[in-house]
Design a protein around this nucleic acid. Structure first.
Lengths: 215, 215
DNA sequence: GCCGAACCTGAATGTTGACTCATGTTTCAA
DNA sequence: TTGAAACATGAGTCAACATTCAGGTTCGGC
């Protein structure tokens, strides 16, 4: 209901980025500043004036680029989603099989979180500030992830099992590892952590049948 | 610095619950109302007046029992921690071994989340509203969980591995399952979900060596 | 060297809501 | 019965922003 924006040509409902170079630069400054502030102080502790000050622009300028505080926040969540997906698919690109892809994925994810702590916190806070954006973030993720797992199972690279459940178990594991070892303890050995985690995800907790291991 | 509360006998720094029955009842009403409101609308969307109205008391009464909005919130997080720990240790009480305990724990956790959605959301939001309480919540959890895993490994009931990492992987998995199948899709089959999850945690993704399974 | 579009600005507005406090009311031990 | 401790109350205070707006400034094509 209430879908009457006026002009008939804009189906996508308002968009249109900056027209000049100056505008694009200002937009980027605002986005970066917002990411830092939201990530550091959280959504509610961050005032628009904090963002504009950090960006080095006037308060009013903010509203030239965004309709509201929530809007930047949503933009940041979407941005983080795109970047994360990109980083992960890159890191997994030439994995020989799914188990190896998992291993690589976990490591890449941890490293990515470390180098994007602010945006990572933004995504997590989105659960409360922008629930729809949060769900969308994980929906996109889980859809792609589920595809991969199903196909791998079909190929026999991994055992059969409930894909949906597996996806959420794996995303949860990565997310918590990211929080603990990426954000809170950013001095931990990423390598060791991701190896241990991958081992658990691949082999489970069950005791190994035979201890003999040929190199 | 600045530790001069006056009376010398109060080492624990302010506490002292209600003295009368009336007081205890009012306190409980406020806590319950706060849990509901915070869980439903979130910390920042909840006004103290919402809480007192739901509790059926005057606005000022709130401040008879709590020093601030944050304080109730923290109390709720602590309460949820205690309840969750209790529910889980009960459910796992007579598991024959650790793998079985994991299976039971996951199911119990999911069920618990379903029946305590509001407080569950409060705990998650604590990450941003009361970070210290949030970390404490997981610290207590992971300490106990780590103990269990280490001992089980020593007993040979589970394979060896980095306990700290495992604890966080498992907590993350449960938390996300709780969010997805406990809060968001509360019509999913808890049984199926927890079985599938337990299977993954216990056996991992790796293809089973021999398909033959003797009952 | 001019014009309109694009962009910039920060003082002013208006709302919201946590917290205070002066004033009751209830309880209960003596 | 009584007085004081415990409890209850809600109008009023006050600071903190999000958002608006009326009035600039800069830029690129001509």
């Amino acid at each position: 209901m209430s879908q009457h924006s006026g002009s008939a040509s804009e189906l996508s409902e308002e968009k249109a980025g900056p027209k000049t170079e100056r505008g694009r630069r200002t937009l980027r400054r605002l986005l970066d500043a917002a990411g830092e502030e939201f990530g550091q102080r959280g959504f509610h502790e961050t005032a628009i004036s904090h963002i504009t000050q950090r960006a080095g622009v006037g308060l009013g300028t903010f509203y030239v680029y965004f309709k509201s505080k929530e809007e930047v926040f949503r933009a940041l969540v979407a941005d983080m989603g795109a970047r994360t997906r990109h980083a992960l698919s890159e890191s997994v690109k030439d994995a020989p099989n799914r188990l190896e892809a998992e291993r690589l994925g976990i490591r890449a994810y941890l490293e990515f979180v470390r180098t994007h702590k602010s945006l990572y916190r933004v995504v997590m806070e989105a659960q409360f500030v922008a629930p729809e954006a949060y769900r969308a973030y994980y929906r996109v993720f889980s859809d792609a992830y589920g595809q991969q797992l199903s196909q791998a199972a079909k190929r026999g690279e991994i055992s059969d099992g409930d894909t949906d459940v597996r996806v959420w178990v794996l995303m949860g594991a990565s997310t918590f590892l990211g929080l603990k070892f990426g954000v809170w303890e950013d001095d931990a050995d990423v390598n060791a952590v991701s190896e241990a985690a991958a081992d658990l995800m691949i082999n489970g907790l069950a005791p190994r049948a035979n201890k003999g291991d040929a190199s």
